[in-house]
Simulated scan of single mutants.
Amino acid sequence: MRWLSLLVGAVFAAAGLKALFFFDPNTAALSRPALVAVSLGGAALFFFLFVRTSRVKRDLSEFESWLQANGERILAGGASYRGARITGDTEVTRFLLAASVVILSFKIPSRYYVAGRDNVGFTKMGYTVASLLFGWWGIPWGPIYTVQALAKNLSGGDRTTVRSYLMLHARA
């Protein structure tokens, strides 16, 4: 998904450059400024998605690796992660971002946020507003993913305890 967003962003950027340098008013459905704005806006969105998903994947992988490595200590009483005491009863939550363009639709989960440590209000609203703005535009999954993301985010995100996470992802 990450690399697809980079590819789609490059296509939008190329379309913006084409509209900027090779504009033909006889065949264009929109004005040059509108075409450039739509193309570069789409490029910015998908480049942002690429960067954001890369960062979220790195943060998520780091946290999940830490949970796996410290699972026994966490369940036995707790361990410290970035200055926060994590126990089996610690609640973590994540949010969803829905983003779409024409036939491409994505649900992008956030990293896990620790309840009581991380201020999730801004993140929750950011993921919700971004889903409202960018989620609807794909057929057929855009509206479906957007409604799912809005429902999940507005209900407080996908919440679980560290104990439940560790049991679900226990090593074989």
Rank of each mutant, 00 (worst) to 15 (best):
2 R>L: 09
4 L>M: 11
4 L>S: 11
5 S>V: 12
6 L>T: 00
6 L>F: 12
7 L>A: 15
9 G>N: 00
9 G>T: 08
9 G>M: 02
11 V>I: 15
12 F>D: 00
12 F>I: 08
13 A>W: 07
14 A>K: 06
15 A>L: 15
15 A>Q: 13
15 A>F: 09
18 K>F: 09
18 K>Y: 05
21 F>Q: 08
21 F>Y: 14
22 F>S: 15
24 D>Y: 01
25 P>H: 12
27 T>A: 13
27 T>V: 12
29 A>K: 14
30 L>R: 14
30 L>M: 14
31 S>Q: 07
32 R>H: 09
36 V>L: 06
39 S>K: 07
40 L>Y: 15
41 G>C: 03
41 G>T: 09
43 A>P: 09
47 F>I: 09
47 F>E: 01
47 F>R: 06
48 F>P: 03
52 R>C: 05
55 R>H: 12
55 R>Q: 14
58 R>C: 00
58 R>Y: 10
59 D>C: 06
60 L>R: 14
61 S>T: 14
62 E>T: 13
63 F>C: 00
63 F>A: 02
64 E>C: 06
66 W>P: 01
67 L>V: 10
67 L>I: 11
69 A>D: 14
69 A>I: 02
73 R>E: 06
76 A>I: 01
77 G>D: 03
78 G>D: 06
82 R>F: 00
84 A>D: 07
90 T>F: 05
90 T>Q: 08
90 T>D: 06
90 T>Y: 02
91 E>T: 15
92 V>K: 02
93 T>A: 13
93 T>K: 13
94 R>D: 09
98 A>M: 06
101 V>H: 07
101 V>S: 05
102 V>R: 11
105 S>I: 06
107 K>Y: 00
108 I>S: 10
109 P>K: 08
110 S>L: 03
112 Y>E: 00
113 Y>R: 12
116 G>W: 00
116 G>C: 01
116 G>V: 03
117 R>L: 01
118 D>C: 11
120 V>Q: 01
120 V>Y: 00
123 T>S: 08
125 M>F: 12
125 M>A: 15
129 V>M: 11
131 S>V: 04
133 L>H: 01
137 W>Q: 13
138 G>R: 07
141 W>E: 05
142 G>A: 10
143 P>W: 01
146 T>K: 04
150 L>T: 11
150 L>P: 07
151 A>L: 14
154 L>T: 12
155 S>H: 10
160 T>W: 00
161 T>D: 09
161 T>M: 07
162 V>F: 02
165 Y>H: 14
167 M>T: 12
167 M>I: 13
167 M>P: 00
169 H>S: 10
172 A>G: 11
172 A>I: 11
172 A>W: 08
